[in-house]
Design a protein around this nucleic acid. Structure first.
Length: 948
RNA sequence: GCCCGGGUGGUGGAACGGCAGACACGGCCGCCUUAAAAGCGGCUGCCGAAAGGCGUGCGGGUUCGAUCCCCGCCCCGGGCACCA
């Protein structure tokens, strides 16, 4: 991209060229670094600085979603958000705020590990090299980061606190009465005091130590569970629900995923479902993101209803959002994995069992076993592909409908999910489409319990209407005639009064699967003793460092082999796994946990480490957390003032981080109850890619357009629009842009392309517009031929001064609202006006340069210095408009007749309405043809509208 | 299928319900130059010679006035999807 040819002598010696820009940029980047220009002072600790110009000032914490340092380096799309936050932060600093802006690296993760597996090189080496490269690329852009605060999640000093927070979570339980996490010791104390009954009612003192531990472990916010998880044989690891795509494949690698019962670490995020939902209302986030989180949490209200099973001690408890339809429950379905199944299945088929219900098996046990095997062997892909075809089998058991005593056959079917509600449903085919479909396959009765307004039409009716067939007079229950909402309220009242159930709320959100079978992640600070139960390492044994091993790969399997089980890389480090430790009760043998934490762990709290990156005694000092993230008043959630990143983290990272933050809040470690007060989703820079006739990508830089068609040499190629990527052969790097135009031009171009939140295509040839703009700014201050200052101390003419103040006012408003593209347009407008003047008045040049500084900081610093200001403008006051100069002396009113502009009048700004009206009528007298208009509307300062 | 977001010149995009198209790219014309590049200046929504007319996905509505608000479609992008 070095096609900007500069031959000495052809261009003025002091023109703002790429070469000059690069020289200026390198010089200022060095100065900023040497002087610590962007160091933000903390209230306490090693980063405190009482002499700093912003010490104790109003603070502003700006955060970017930190990048994964990939081996490919940055392309021009990556820094879009970083530049946006930098412009905003530089503006806020000039507006008087103490701005904290830092950059770190989310450096655990699969690519470094996979590269390590291929090459045998340790992932730490690859990771460190990539981070070094990223730092260099980011530095080149002139980002005003506090370099002292840069952290990487793979730093041992960082992940010791990730482990520490894990222990906080592990050593906590959720008190549903107080709606808060509490230390686990307090739960134990309640059990010991008898204040809290044990699950089976036996006195605490009668339980043996292992029984007690099992009960306590069952309450922890981090716990080991044997439950259905997403097992991905092709990757050799289990995955969180959020990492599985809609069609049942791994987000990474696109391998099939199977539900398997495996022992895994879970985080009890469901305990926080209601707070994660309710507190969304306190956040200044884009509505679509809040909506995605609301949908993900998926709160539904309804009721639990108990259906007794004759001969079984336990009833089948179902969750339903439509308790009003209980009279239409003609069968029930349990998830195949439901724990009650084995206890209710009889030895033989009951009399009258239809052949279609048995799956051809001689007895119910065989039928259930066969169906379970079938269901377990189906990947989510297959299950969802066949969603319309219902499968299942009769268990041989009947339950009793509590409202009328009717016997109800119990089926198992995989359309009922073990993880949602109670894993059991009452099926009401008359009012539910899925139940209808199942009832058709198994020829089950259908009872309508809601009357549609326009008649029955051979399918389930899910709308509102009066209840029918819903009375049991002998039991004091009659819903008939009630609308859905009233019927719901009435039946819940009846269920509660008669002990058959109660109103209930359930969430779609499931607990978070927290362990991975990988090497390159945080080791769990957990060991197992001879009982096989987990034991937390004491804090003084942190950090628990990753052991050095030779083979970093988890064992992977045939992607389709559902019946395989994970084997972790760390389990190969035998000397590390089998240890003797003294955890306070003398040296004993322990076995270490060999799973590692998922990549999300570090990103759940990194924003707090920037606040106090070197603190060896705490993850963050409370005074520093309170200053930077504390609530601004009663009811305020606190948190980062502006968090900018892509929408792809709408539910994963942003939900997990909120959860951890709330646990830390409950335990008193932070004062904010949300981590990110304001969220801003930046758009993406997209790019065109071109394929030839064989579908192979050709180098996009070599493609030319001719009459709306695209050619690579003489070959016509096909244009695609999408991502930038090596394999698409359309990558443009910031390095090339900086070399060809300078970092300031690159920054201005990216910010001027459109609103920060909107995605847009990259167009290299358009970058020159930003370049010409900066050249014009340069020329207003510096004579291109001589290098002399063109700035004069004479006052500006009135029009220029008014323009300046209008622009200052607009740019300030645009920057405050993060409308960076329109701010730049205004600066160009001002520059274009000033360029036409014979010399540049200082009263215009200085504010122009100051306003330019957030966008193009290097050239602004350089010009500021040349205008006689030593030091940096980073802390100079951002210009303020004089309100008196914002009021125009005269106003031009367009005059509309019948909605069309037919003339315009110029009147003094303070002209009263009759004056404007008379002037307007005069100018359009011809159109009115002497007739008196029906109506004349004068909008002060805006326009006149006449209805003829 | 359900839920969001969005459709404005050749292109990226501007417009508190008030002159649609700011600003930029591209294009055309000109200046400078032996020449080219760079730079600078002018023009550039569409139709029309002009006067003028038509224009913000399509069709309606509210309003003195609609890119903006309301209703119904069409198209594009994203999210969720057997959640009882």
């Amino acid at each position: 991209m070095s096609d900007v040819v500069e031959t000495a002598g052809d261009i003025p010696s002091f023109r703002y060229t790429a070469a000059l820009a690069n020289e200026i940029e390198a010089r200022w980047q060095d100065r900023w670094e040497e002087r610590g220009t962007f160091h933000a002072p903390n209230p306490v600790g090693p980063l405190a600085d009482p002499d700093h110009p912003r010490a104790g000032a109003d603070k502003m914490y700006i955060l970017d979603m930190f990048p994964y340092p990939s081996g490919a380096g940055l392309h021009v799309g990556h820094p879009l958000g970083f530049i946006g936050t930098d412009c905003y932060g530089r503006f806020q600093r000039m507006a008087g705020r103490n701005v904290l802006h830092a950059m770190g690296f989310d450096s655990f993760g699969l690519p470094a590990e996979q590269y390590a597996v291929q090459t045998g090189q340790h992932p730490r080496k690859t990771t460190d090299e990539n981070i070094t490269r990223y730092r260099a690329q980011l530095r080149m852009l002139g980002l005003a980061h506090d370099g002292r605060r840069s952290v990487a999640t793979t730093d041992v000093d960082f992940y010791r606190w990730t482990q520490w927070i894990f222990l906080q979570v592990f050593n906590s339980w959720y008190d549903t009465d107080r709606r808060s996490a509490r230390p686990i010791d307090e739960l134990v104390a309640e059990f010991e005091a008898g204040a809290r009954p044990t699950p089976d009612g036996r006195p605490w003192a009668d339980l043996d130590p292992v029984e007690r531990r099992l009960i306590v472990d069952d309450h922890r916010l981090a716990y080991v569970s044997q439950s259905p998880v997403n097992w991905c044989p092709g990757l050799g690891t289990v995955l969180a629900n959020e990492e599985v795509t809609a069609d049942g494949r791994s987000e990474r690698g696109n391998f099939p995923v199977f539900k398997r019962n495996l022992k895994q670490w879970m985080m009890r995020i469901t305990a926080y479902g209601d707070r994660l939902l309710a507190d969304l209302d306190t956040l200044d986030w884009p509505e679509p993101i809040k909506l995605m989180q609301r949908n993900w949490i998926g709160r539904s209200t309804g009721a639990h209803i108990d259906f007794p099973v004759p001969g079984s001690a336990d009833p089948i408890r179902v969750f339903t959002t439509r308790p009003d339809t209980v009279f239409g429950a003609t069968y029930m379905v349990l998830a195949p994995e439901h724990e009650l199944v084995d206890r209710i299945v009889p030895g033989t088929w009951p009399a009258g069992t239809r052949d279609a219900w048995t799956g051809g098996h001689a007895d119910p046990r065989a039928a259930v076993a066969a169906y379970r095997e079938f269901a377990a062997g189906r990947s989510d892909v297959e299950r969802q592909a066949d969603a319309k075809e219902k499968t299942g089998v009769f268990t041989g058991a009947y339950a009793t409908n509590p409202v009328n005593g009717a016997p109800v056959p119990v089926f198992i079917a995989d359309y009922v999910l073990a993880g949602y509600g109670t894993g059991a449903i009452m099926a009401v085919p008359g009012q539910d489409e899925r139940d209808w479909a199942f009832a058709e396959v198994f020829d089950l009765p259908i009872i309508r319990t809601v009357r549609p307004s326009d008649g029955f039409d051979g399918k389930a009716y899910t709308g509102d209407g009066p209840a029918i067939n819903s009375a049991a007079p002998d039991r004091g229950l009659d819903l008939d005639g009630l609308g859905v909402a009233d019927a719901k309220a009435r039946i819940i009242e009846w269920l509660e009064a008669n002990g058959h159930g109660q109103g209930a709320t359930t969430y779609r959100l499931r607990d978070w699967l927290f362990s991975r079978q990988r090497y390159w992640g945080e080791p769990f600070p957990i060991v197992y003793d001879e009982t096989g139960l987990p034991v937390a390492l004491p804090e003084n044994m942190l950090p628990l460092e990753l052991p050095e091993i030779d083979d970093f790969s988890p064992k992977t399997f045939d992607p389709e082999a559902a019946d395989t089980s994970p084997e972790t890389p760390l389990s190969r480090a035998r000397d590390w796994v089998e240890v003797e430790l003294d955890l306070g009760d003398g040296p004993k043998r322990y076995t270490r946990e060999t799973n590692t934490m998922p990549q999300w762990a570090g990103s759940c709290w990194y924003e707090m480490r920037y606040l106090d990156p070197t603190n060896a005694g705490r993850f963050v000092d409370p005074d520093n957390e309170t200053y930077w993230m504390g609530p601004r008043g009663a009811g305020d959630c606190g948190g980062v003032d502006l968090y900018v990143g892509g929408v792809e983290h709408a539910v994963l990272h942003l939900l997990y981080a909120r959860f951890w933050h709330k646990v830390l809040f409950d335990l008193g470690h932070v004062t904010s109850f949300e981590p990110f007060r304001k969220l801003f989703n930046q758009g993406y820079i997209q790019a065109y890619a071109y394929t030839d006739a064989r579908g192979a990508y050709v180098n996009a830089a070599e493609v030319e357009e001719r009459d709306g068609r695209w050619f690579h040499g003489e070959v016509e190629v096909n244009r695609e629009y999408g991502k930038m990527g090596k394999s698409l052969r359309n990558v443009v790097t910031p390095d090339e842009m900086v070399e060809a135009y300078g970092a300031d031009t690159f920054r201005v171009y990216e910010m001027s392309m459109g609103p920060l939140e909107v995605s847009r295509p990259w167009e290299t040839r358009a970058v020159v517009g930003a370049y010409r703009f900066l050249q014009r700014v340069w020329r207003t201050v510096v004579d291109e031929e001589t290098g002399a200052l063109r700035v004069v101390d004479e006052p500006a003419d009135d029009a220029t001064r008014r323009l300046l103040h209008r622009i200052v006012d607009g740019v300030r408003a645009d920057l405050t609202g993060i409308r960076l593209n329109t701010a730049i347009a205004k600066l160009i407008e001002l520059t274009n006006a000033v360029t036409r003047l014979p010399a540049t008045p200082r009263e215009v040049a200085e504010p122009l340069v100051l306003m330019l500084a957030p966008f193009a900081p290097h050239i602004a610093e350089e010009l500021w210095e040349r205008m006689g200001h030593p030091g940096s403008l980073a802390y100079a006051d951002f210009p303020t408009a004089d309100p008196a100069l914002l009021v125009a002396e005269s106003v031009t009113y367009p005059v509309q007749v019948g909605g069309k502009v037919r003339g315009r009048i110029e009147v003094p700004a303070d002209a009263d309405e009759p004056t404007v009206r008379a002037a307007a009528l005069a100018v359009v007298a011809e159109q009115l043809g002497g007739k008196e208009p029906r109506k004349v509307i004068v909008v002060k300062g805006r326009m006149v509208s006449i209805v003829p």
